[in-house]
């Protein structure tokens, strides 16, 4: 189409701006899909494609420091090696101890904090902000702050425990295989409990007040009200937040990598850390991938069963 101007000259139509073109596109029925294209392309490129690739890698040989081995298909070799690898079984056991203890500890502490803060007394707004702070601190700093406090020679924790009389001499927490896991768990619980406090407090605030009033009229004491009003009302949030927390506890070896590196011995080696060290230190990409795949499958099975179980119990 062309336009004839007043002087009789033919001019091309002024090109419509690209913004106008997008506005037109927004009127088509596929607009929602267009909006999703960038996110889908990105997720496909940086998550799904690498994941499929990584699963494939677990059936192949790949060691960056042994390129002579090639990258051939080796079938289930890594998975068979894994079943016979005592460190794998130890890491699996440690993963369960680590995840369950940290999650239960964080949940209980978080619930206590939420119940307390929900009393909305003077100063609690400020307290809530301060309590949330550890969750936003980087793993590296959180780890080293605690390493400074738990140091065998100069740590303040040792100093305080000796002064109070609980300890007779300073203790090298992270050098003792019996204590390293407990010390790391303390750091993890400190780091993670605000997550539960945050979500559970929001959940508590959403409980309709008349439920409590009705229970009080029926003569229910504080414990009965907690058992029959608060807990059932919080159940969905507890279930959801536990799944999210377990996923990140199982998946991220950061705190242990920084504090202990899996030691002493292998007393704090968890599966995600073992897989990461296989790749980062030994450059054994094939075996590392097999470990990661096992981790992923276990996590999927857990999440599925857990959510199913929670739903069954609701009925």
């Amino acid at each position: 189409m062309a336009v004839v101007d007043h002087a009789g000259r033919v001019r091309p139509t002024p090109r419509r701006s690209w913004l106008g073109a997008i506005a037109d596109l927004s009127e088509t029925r596929y607009w929602a899909y267009w909006l999703l294209v960038p996110a889908l392309v990105l997720i496909l490129a940086v998550v799904l494609y690498p994941t499929v690739w990584g699963i494939g890698l677990s059936f192949r040989e790949m060691r960056l420091n042994r390129l002579d081995l090639g990258t051939g298909f080796v079938g289930l070799k890594h998975y068979r090696a894994l079943v016979e690898d005592p460190i794998f079984w130890l890491s699996l056991q440690n993963t369960v101890i680590w995840t369950v203890t940290a999650c239960v500890g964080e949940l209980l502490l978080g619930l206590a904090v939420a119940l307390l803060l929900n009393r909305e007394q003077r100063g609690f707004r400020v307290a809530a902000v301060l309590i949330l702070l550890p969750w936003f601190l980087p793993n590296v700093v959180a780890g080293h702050m605690w390493a400074l406090m738990l140091d065998p020679r100069l740590g303040v924790v040792n100093d305080l425990l000796v002064k109070v009389g609980i300890l007779s001499t300073y203790k090298a927490w992270f050098a003792d295989p019996n204590w390293a896991m407990a010390a790391a768990l303390l750091v993890e619980i400190w780091h993670g409990f605000p997550f539960f406090a945050l979500l559970l407090l929001a959940g508590l605030k959403a409980i309709p007040q008349d439920l409590y009033e009705a229970a009080a009229i029926d003569g229910a004491g504080p414990l009965t009200r907690f058992r029959y009003v608060t807990l059932p009302q919080l159940k969905t949030i507890i279930v959801a937040s536990v799944v999210l927390r377990v996923i990140s506890l199982v998946n991220s070896p950061d705190i242990l990598l920084i504090l202990t590196g899996g030691g002493p011995g292998r007393s704090t080696m968890v599966l995600s850390l073992y897989a990461f060290l296989k790749v980062n230190k030994e450059f054994n990409f094939g075996y590392g991938s097999a470990l990661a795949v096992v981790l992923f499958v276990l996590l999927m099975v857990f999440s599925y069963l857990y959510v199913r179980l929670a739903n069954v119990m609701k009925d």
């Binding site: 940086v46 990661a292 999440s303």
Partner: peptide
């Protein structure tokens, strides 16, 4: 839910 390690390996390559 995807473990970071599982994505890191192929992403590296």
């Amino acid at each position: 839910m995807f473990p970071a390690v599982m994505i890191i390996i192929p992403l590296f390559i």
